[in-house]
Each structure stands twice: as structure tokens, then as C-alpha cells.
Amino acid sequence: MADRVTFRMGDVFPADDDIAVWVMNLSIALGDLRIVADYAVRDEQPDYERIYFVRLFASHLREVAKLLARDFDDRQDVRDFVAKLPQAGRDARDEAARMLNDNFTLRPRIVVWRDMARVRNDTFHYASDKPSRKRLRAAIEEVADMEGVYFVNDDGTMRADYADLVTANRMHPFEEQEPELPVTRELHDRIIALNEQVATFIAHAESQWLFSRSQGVVTVTSD
């Protein structure tokens, strides 16, 4: 059995209401996070797929952080709305903000949200900006003595494994004593934990917004 919460879109999300637009943004973001989370936590997947979904996961979370952290700091209407949430929702937002400003254990000089921003830029900009291009050049130089491979399989599929090698190095530039996989795993663990808090907060925000509408605007049915 599943519940259906139904309403006329314009009655619940009027386009000229700033908080309605903000909550809609949260809902869109949570939908994206739920999709990528399913892929990122799969036990059986090639390393290059795991790294890709970690990059994508971190990138989505970095953008969501702007909604629940930056907007909270900059907008009084957002703070007023959040103040009406149940304690669990407010606690989740506070914990997410704390986690974003925390430092990595293996890289104690690196702040989580800043590293997520770097990963986001490198994932989506493809080195079109100067900092990303500089990191790409550094990663190419770092793997200069490694073997590059291009796979052409019997079924006609192909993959530039050499590009995956550079991507992995660019994602986590590390010193010799910092092996790549533990660093990748720590980022993976941080974004999973952060996502839990973000998802909890957004679910409370959605519920608060939907069920604070006038009586009769929102209908709940069970299928």
C-alpha cells in the first residue's frame, strides 16, 4: 500500500512565492540525490564507475549545500521557514552544515565543502576554467610513467582506461603516503553521511510546506 499526496500545483507552489520556489528546488535536488545514491553505493561495480558516481554524488550535494547552508545564512525568509520545522528537521540541517565545514581525517587541511566544490568543477567543467585545467595538467604529469590502456572489446565496446587513470588522480591528488583508495573511500563515506542529514532535512521541509497549506488544498489517499 502506498499513500498519494495530491494537489493542484499552482495552489501549493505558486511561482511568485519565494519559499515555494525554494522548497521546489529542494525537492528537485532530493530526487537527483536519491537516483545517484542508488548507484554510488552498489557493491559490485568497476572502480571507474564508482569514482564517477562519487564525483556526481559530491557534485549534487555541493549544489544542495547552497540551498540549506548559504540560503539559510543569507535569507531571513528561509530561516523563518526552517524555524517552523520539527526539531529533527532543524537538527538535520544544523548537522549537515557542520559536516560541510568539517575537515577530512586523511587530509586535515581540506574542508569538506571546498573539496566537493573542486570535485564538482572538475566533473562538469572538463577543465574549461583555469583552476580545473591546471589540475588536469598536474594529473597528467603525475601519471606520466604509468601504463596507458585503451580497451577494444570483442563486443565492439571501447573504453579509454588511460582517461580513467587521470580522472582518479585528478579527483584525489595525494602525497605518496596517502594511497588513493582510502582517500576516495573517506570522501564516499562523508557524502553518504552528509546525504542522510540532507535527505532528512528536505523531507521535513517538504512535509512542512505541503501540510501547512489551507485545508482541502492537499489530499492524502491510499492505493
Rank of each mutant, 00 (worst) to 15 (best):
M1W: 04
A2W: 11
D3V: 09
R4V: 10
R4S: 11
R4P: 00
T6N: 15
F7D: 03
R8T: 15
M9D: 15
G10Q: 15
G10V: 12
F13I: 00
I19E: 00
I19S: 01
A29M: 00
L30N: 05
L30I: 02
G31S: 04
R34V: 12
V36A: 06
A37P: 13
D38E: 02
D38K: 05
A40C: 06
A40G: 06
V41W: 08
R42N: 14
R42K: 15
D43S: 09
Y48K: 00
Y52S: 07
F53R: 07
V54L: 15
R55A: 08
F57Y: 15
A58N: 07
A58D: 11
S59M: 12
H60A: 06
R62C: 06
A65T: 08
K66N: 05
L67G: 14
R70P: 04
F72G: 00
F72M: 02
Q76I: 03
V78N: 01
V78H: 01
Q87M: 04
A88W: 01
R93Q: 13
E95T: 15
E95W: 07
A97L: 14
D102P: 02
R107Y: 08
P108N: 01
R109W: 00
R109T: 10
V112Q: 04
V112G: 01
V112W: 03
V112L: 14
R114H: 09
A117I: 02
A117D: 11
R118A: 10
V119W: 10
R120W: 09
N121P: 01
D122Y: 05
T123Y: 09
F124H: 15
H125D: 01
Y126S: 05
R133Y: 15
R135Y: 04
A138W: 00
I140T: 09
E141W: 09
E141Y: 04
A144Y: 02
D145A: 13
F151R: 11
N153I: 03
N153F: 13
D154L: 13
D155C: 12
G156E: 02
T157H: 03
M158T: 14
M158N: 05
R159N: 11
R159A: 06
D161F: 07
A163R: 03
D164L: 09
L165Y: 04
L165R: 02
L165F: 06
V166F: 11
A168C: 07
N169L: 07
N169Q: 03
M171K: 04
P173F: 10
E175S: 14
Q177W: 03
Q177V: 00
P179C: 00
P179L: 01
E180R: 02
L181V: 11
V183G: 02
L187H: 05
L187W: 10
H188C: 08
R190Y: 05
R190Q: 12
I191S: 04
L194Q: 13
A199H: 09
T200K: 11
T200E: 15
F201C: 07
I202K: 12
I202G: 03
H204Y: 12
W209L: 06
L210A: 03
L210C: 05
F211I: 09
S212G: 10
S212L: 07
R213D: 04
S214W: 12
Q215C: 12
G216H: 05
V218N: 05
V218P: 05
T219V: 02
V220H: 14
D223W: 11
D223S: 06
